[in-house]
Design a protein around this nucleic acid. Structure first.
Length: 714
RNA sequence: GCUAGCGUAGCUCAACGGCAGAGCACAGGUUUUGUAAACCUGCGGUUGAGGGUUCAAGUCCCUCCGCUAGCUCCA
C-alpha cells in the first residue's frame, strides 16, 4: 500500500497501480470532474499516470484543478499539441520540433513548406476547435529509447530523431502522447482530454532557429495562448491592448518626447524639446548624486584611433556590430576586411582560403607601394601575419566612432602617474556611443544605434573592490527607488564555461565571479546567476526590467574587469613603492539615457511626476476676459522656476481641460471671474481632479514641496 | 541578418483592379464659455521610393527603404 498526504494534511491509503483519477473519484464526483492533473511529490503528472509504488513511505499528493497555475501550464502544453495536430492535418508533411509552454501561452516550432502565414490562422483555429469538440484523450505510452527513435523516424519527424540523438540518449525509455492519429514524442504531462481547453487563440508567427542556433535551419514558431474559460482569454487580450497604450513609441509621439527620422537614420533618437527636458532633469539628478559620491566628471570625444579598440579588444570582437571605421588610407577598408576575416578564421568562424588571402595581397601590392608585403609573406604563422596587417592599418590614422567609453577613460587614468593614495579614481561621463545593431533588433528607444550611457569607470585596488561594488549597487538601487521602479530583477552574468569568447585568465574570472556572487548574497538580494551573460571582459550585475509588452531590458549594470587594466598596462604605485595593477569597475545606473527614458515613459504611462514633467502647470482661463489675469499667474509661476504654459485660445474650458489631461500636465489652473477677483486659482490635479480654489502662494508652496521631495504618484 | 506581417493627409483609419475619402489636428470666422470634445468654412495626398503587369494599380509582381512581432546578437 501507498500512503498519500493530501494538501489538507489528511492521509489516504491506496493500492499499487492506483491513478490520480481513481483518487479523485474516491474523494468526490465534482473533484473528479474538475481535476486536470495531479502533483505527486512536487511533480505534475497525468491523471492516468500510475502512482509510484516502491520504496516510499508517504508521498505528497495534490489534485490540480483550473484554479492552480500549474494546471494552466498543462492546458497550454496540451493546446500546443492540439495546434500541432491541426497543422499536421492541414499541412501534411510538416515537421515538428519543440512545443513548450511559455509565460503567457505556448508555441510550437514547425518546419513546413510553403510557410504558414497569419492568414492561415482561421482555418488552423477551426481545425483546433474541431479537435477540442472531439475531446479525445491524451494517451501516454513509453518505448525503449531505440524504439522511440525508430518510431519518430517512422512518423517522419527528423527533428524528434535528432533531439533523441543529441539530448535524450541517456534515458532508458521515452514517453509519447497519442491523440487519435496524432502521436508526439513528449515528456508531458497533458490534460485528460482535449475538451478541457476552454478558450485559445493563435497570436503570431515568427522565425526561430532549430535549437536556437543561427547557423541551423530556421523554423516557423507559431505562438498562441489558452485558458480554461473564454472570459479569462478575453481579459488577457484586453490587458494586452491596455498595455500597448503605455508603449513608449506611441506615447513618445503623442507627448512629443522624441522622434526617429529615417532621414537621420534608423535607431538614432531625436530628442524633442519636451523629452530633452526630462532627460536633462534625470542627468542633473544623477550628476548631483555622483558628486556626493566622489565621482569626477570628465568629457571625451566621440571617436578614437582604431588602434585603441584593437588594444581594448572591442574592434575585432564586435566588428559586425560597429559602424565601419573612418579610414585614413584608401586601402584601409580592404586591409580591415582582410584582417577581420583572418581573426574570424582563427576563431573557427567564417572562411578565408589561401587563394583569397593571395588576392588581398595582390590588390594591396598593386595599389600601394608602402604595404609591407614582404614581411607578410615572411611571417611564420597567421598570428604574425595578422600583426603585420594590424601594424600597417593602425599606422594609417583610422578612427572609430566609439562603441564604449572605457578606452577613453583609461587614457585619462594613464595621463598621470597614480598612487594607491589616489584610488579609487572614479571618472564619470554621459558618454555617447554608437553601435551598429542589426536592423531586426532596433526598437524605439530601447534598442538603438546611438545612445548615451551614464557611464563611469572606477580604478580601484583589489582591496577596494567590494566596497566600491557595493556602493555602486547602492547607487543603482537609489536611482531605481527614486523613480518608483520596483519591478526589476537582478541578474548576475557569469561566463559560459563552454565558450571561448571571453578574454582573461581563468583565475581572474573565478575571483571576479566569486566576488560578485558574494556581494549580492551579502546584500540579501534575490538574484539569478546566469552563465553566458557576462561581458567578454568580466562578470556583471545587471538590473533588468520589463517593457509594456513583457520584453526584458537591461538598465543599470555594474561590471568587474581585470582584463582591460592588463591590456592597457594600467598601474598605480603601492605602499611598497612598487607598481601594482588596478582593477576596473564599469557601471551605469540608468544604463543608457535612451533606454531608461523609454522604460520610464512606460512606467509612468507618460504621466511624469511633477519634478520631471516637461510641462508642470498649464493656465486655463475660462474665457478671453481672464487671459490677462492668467498671464499674470503664469509669469509669477515662471519666475519661481516652474515650467508653465497657458492656453489662451478662445475655446470652452472643458475642451482646454481635455487637452491638458491628454498632454498629462500635472497641474491645471482654471482662472475665471471668481479667481480673478479673489486673487486665487482653481487647481485641478491630473489624477485627483478639482482641488478647489487656493491663493497662488499656497499653490507655490505645494508645488515647491512636491518637487523638492521628487514625489512620485501613480 | 533571418521568418512572417505592415506602410494611404501631421495623427487614427476607410476605399471589389475602376472618380483617393472620413474623424481629429491645423487655418479663417462665429460663439465669451466654470472642470475630459461648441458651431461653420477652408487647407491638406506624387497612396514610403523605384521598376514591372494591365485599357486601368493604393490594390497584383519585383527591388530598395522604413516599421511591427519573434529568432539570432547585445561591450
Amino acid at each position: 500500500m501507498l500512503t498519500l498526504r493530501l494538501p489538507d494534511g489528511s492521509r489516504r491509503q491506496v493500492a499499487p497501480g492506483t491513478r490520480p483519477r481513481d483518487v479523485a473519484e474516491a474523494i468526490g464526483k465534482r473533484l473528479a470532474q474538475a481535476a486536470v492533473a495531479a502533483k505527486v511529490n512536487g511533480v505534475v503528472v497525468d491523471l492516468d499516470r500510475e502512482l509510484p509504488v516502491d520504496g516510499q513511505e508517504e508521498v505528497a499528493f495534490q489534485l490540480l484543478t483550473d484554479k492552480d497555475p500549474e494546471a494552466l501550464d498543462v492546458l497550454r502544453h496540451s493546446c500546443a499539441h492540439i495546434m500541432a495536430r491541426a497543422v499536421m492535418r492541414l499541412f501534411p508533411g510538416a515537421k515538428l520540433a519543440f512545443g513548450p509552454t511559455i509565460e503567457n501561452g505556448f508555441y510550437y516550432d514547425i518546419d513546413v513548406t510553403p510557410p504558414i502565414r497569419e492568414e492561415d490562422f482561421p482555418r488552423i483555429e477551426e481545425e483546433m476547435r474541431r479537435i477540442i469538440r472531439e475531446a479525445e484523450p491524451f494517451e501516454r505510452f513509453e518505448r525503449p529509447t531505440a524504439e522511440a527513435r525508430a518510431l519518430c523516424a517512422d512518423l517522419e519527424q527528423p527533428y524528434k530523431v535528432e533531439h533523441i540523438d543529441d539530448d535524450l540518449k541517456q534515458f532508458p525509455t521515452l514517453s509519447f502522447y497519442r491523440q487519435g492519429e496524432f502521436v508526439d514524442l513528449c515528456r508531458g504531462p497533458h490534460l485528460p482530454h482535449a475538451g478541457k481547453v476552454g478558450a485559445f487563440k493563435l497570436l503570431s508567427i515568427a522565425g526561430a532557429y532549430w535549437k536556437n542556433d543561427a547557423s541551423r535551419k530556421q523554423l516557423q514558431r507559431l505562438y498562441g495562448t489558452a485558458f480554461f474559460t473564454q472570459k479569462e482569454l478575453d481579459a488577457y487580450l484586453t490587458q494586452l491592448e491596455e498595455a500597448k497604450k503605455r508603449d513608449h513609441r506611441l506615447l513618445g509621439k503623442q507627448l512629443k518626447l522624441f522622434t526617429i527620422s529615417p532621414a537621420v537614420g534608423s535607431g538614432l533618437i531625436l530628442w524633442m524639446p519636451k523629452g530633452a527636458i526630462v532627460r536633462g532633469l534625470l542627468e542633473s539628478f544623477i550628476k548631483e548624486e555622483l558628486l556626493k559620491r566622489g565621482y569626477q566628471p570628465v568629457y571625451t570625444p566621440h571617436i578614437g584611433r582604431l588602434e585603441l579598440y584593437f588594444t581594448s579588444g572591442h574592434f575585432p570582437y564586435y566588428r559586425d556590430a560597429q559602424f565601419p571605421p573612418l579610414h585614413g588610407h584608401p586601402l584601409g577598408a580592404v586591409v580591415e576586411q582582410w584582417l577581420i576575416r583572418m581573426h574570424a578564421r582563427q576563431r573557427g568562424e567564417g572562411s578565408l582560403t589561401a587563394a583569397e588571402e593571395e588576392e588581398y595581397l595582390a590588390e594591396v601590392e598593386r595599389k600601394s607601394a608602402d604595404f609591407p608585403a614582404a614581411a607578410y609573406r615572411a611571417a611564420a604563422d597567421a598570428t604574425q601575419k595578422m600583426a603585420t596587417l594590424q601594424d600597417w592599418l593602425v599606422k594609417q590614422d583610422s578612427y572609430l566612432l566609439k562603441p564604449m567609453n572605457c578606452p577613453h577613460h583609461i587614457q585619462i587614468y594613464k595621463a598621470e602617474p597614480r598612487s594607491y593614495r589616489d584610488l579609487p579614481v572614479r571618472l564619470a561621463e554621459f558618454g555617447t556611443v554608437y553601435r551598429f545593431e542589426q536592423t531586426g533588433e532596433l526598437s524605439g528607444m530601447t534598442r538603438v544605434r546611438g545612445f548615451t550611457q551614464d557611464d563611469a569607470h572606477l580604478f580601484v585596488t583589489p582591496e577596494q573592490i567590494e566596497t566600491e561594488m557595493r556602493a555602486n549597487i547602492d547607487l543603482v538601487l537609489f536611482v531605481l527607488s527614486s523613480l518608483g521602479l520596483s519591478d526589476y530583477r537582478v541578474r548576475v552574468g557569469l561566463r559560459d564555461p563552454k565558450s571561448d569568447k571571453y578574454v582573461g585568465s581563468d583565475e581572474d574570472w573565478a575571483t571576479a565571479q566569486r566576488i560578485l556572487v558574494d556581494i549580492v548574497k551579502g546584500l540579501g538580494m534575490t538574484y539569478s546567476a546566469e552563465e553566458g551573460e557576462a561581458a567578454f571582459y568580466g562578470p556583471k550585475i545587471d538590473f533588468v526590467v520589463r517593457d509594456c509588452i513583457g520584453r526584458e531590458w537591461q538598465l543599470g549594470t555594474v561590471q568587474l574587469d581585470y582584463n582591460l587594466p592588463k591590456r592597457f598596462e594600467l598601474e598605480y604605485i603601492g605602499p611598497d613603492n612598487k607598481p601594482h595593477r588596478p582593477v576596473m569597475i564599469h557601471r551605469a545606473p540608468f544604463g543608457s539615457m535612451e533606454r531608461f527614458m523609454g522604460i520610464l515613459i512606460e512606467h509612468f504611462a507618460g504621466a511624469f511626476p511633477l519634478w520631471l514633467a516637461p510641462e508642470q502647470v498649464r493656465i486655463l482661463p475660462v474665457s478671453d476676459r481672464f487671459a490677462e489675469y492668467g498671464r499674470k499667474v503664469e509669469a509669477e509661476l515662471r519666475a519661481r522656476g516652474f515650467r508653465v504654459s497657458g492656453d489662451y485660445r478662445p475655446d470652452k474650458i472643458g475642451y482646454k481641460i481635455r487637452e491638458a489631461q491628454l498632454d498629462k500636465v500635472p497641474y491645471m489652473l482654471v482662472v475665471g471671474e471668481k479667481e480673478q477677483s479673489a486673487g486665487t486659482v482653481a487647481v485641478r490635479e491630473r489624477s485627483a481632479g478639482d482641488l478647489g480654489a487656493m491663493p497662488v502662494a499656497e499653490l507655490l508652496a505645494r508645488l515647491d514641496q512636491e518637487v523638492r521631495e521628487r514625489r512620485i504618484r501613480k
